[in-house]
Nucleic acid binder design. Structure first.
Lengths: 145, 145
DNA sequence: AATGCATCTGCAATAAATTGCAATAACAAG
DNA sequence: CTTGTTATTGCAATTTATTGCAGATGCATT
């Protein structure tokens, strides 16, 4: 069963209605195989089919996150990206200069997360965060000035 | 020399003009001894003195960050907090349920940051990020339902 | 297949951060 | 101290995400 079908069925089983709008959003994000902003989803859906309101995109993505079927990562600067759970948990390295995003296995952070949990009682959600910094390319560009 | 004087002088030395508005913003954030949102700074400044435009608050805080005199931490969900550099670098643990923020020494992350730098060439800015998750109190509240 | 109701969508209004521009004021130079 | 330059401010307009509400629609039941 394709991934988007799984997600649609999961939504249905939890008592949510399956509308054409929701199907389009889910298919778009499931097929893309990457992280997308609400705006990107909106553009793809509009190109593919009839009009759909941007508010519906936001609400559908939020619903998926609430139901645990997708993850929301706030990259800062107003950029919020979504991906289905098929993407394993990972951390986003966001360059503050060019905005490029690199994904890192969340596995790397496990010992740290466990330490934080032990000392602060705080359970880290691995799929939901970003680290800001300077990517390799921008470091070179800066040093060459 | 008080911290706010140091900051004002640093701004001046870099060719920026010292206006009453900027002084008020800097004094507010320097004296508060904590992280503040632009909105919080706005309210404190207004309470203390004559009117000042919210746009000026944003621009002044941005200027401080650009000049490396303050740090900006994007806590997600539209919450952006500022603090002067006197605050050592630290990470924010943000509870996705109650919104509470706990600060953690950035020192803890050093080995990880070094690993990321070695493998991805990405330099992490330690003062500028937040980890989302569930705080101890909210875990209890959830399990007691 | 038809029906009824609760959910969902689209629209418009709202909230919040950012930006352009004209007027103001800091401050360096004389 | 006065003056001129130009950075800075305040206002208003713009952009972008969110929310309330009335009408539309999915879908369980009959």
């Amino acid at each position: 069963m394709p991934h988007c079908r799984t997600l649609i069925e999961a939504l249905h089983q939890r008592g949510h209605r399956i509308t054409p709008q929701r199907e389009m959003v889910i298919e778009t994000i499931a097929h893309s195989g990457r992280h997308m902003t609400a705006e990107e989803v909106y553009e793809e859906v509009q190109a593919r089919s009839r009009a759909i309101n941007i508010a519906t995109i936001y609400r559908t993505l939020d619903l998926l996150v609430e139901e645990g079927l997708a993850s929301r990562a706030d990259l800062g600067g107003g950029r919020v990206v979504y991906a289905t759970i098929r993407h394993g948990p990972h951390i986003h390295l966001v360059c503050r200069q060019c905005g490029a995003v690199t994904d890192v296995e969340a596995e790397l952070f496990k010992p740290l997360f466990e330490y934080i949990c032990a000392h602060y009682g705080f359970i880290c959600s691995p799929q939901h965060f970003a680290i800001h910094g300077l990517c390799a390319a921008c470091q070179q560009a800066t040093s060459n000035e």
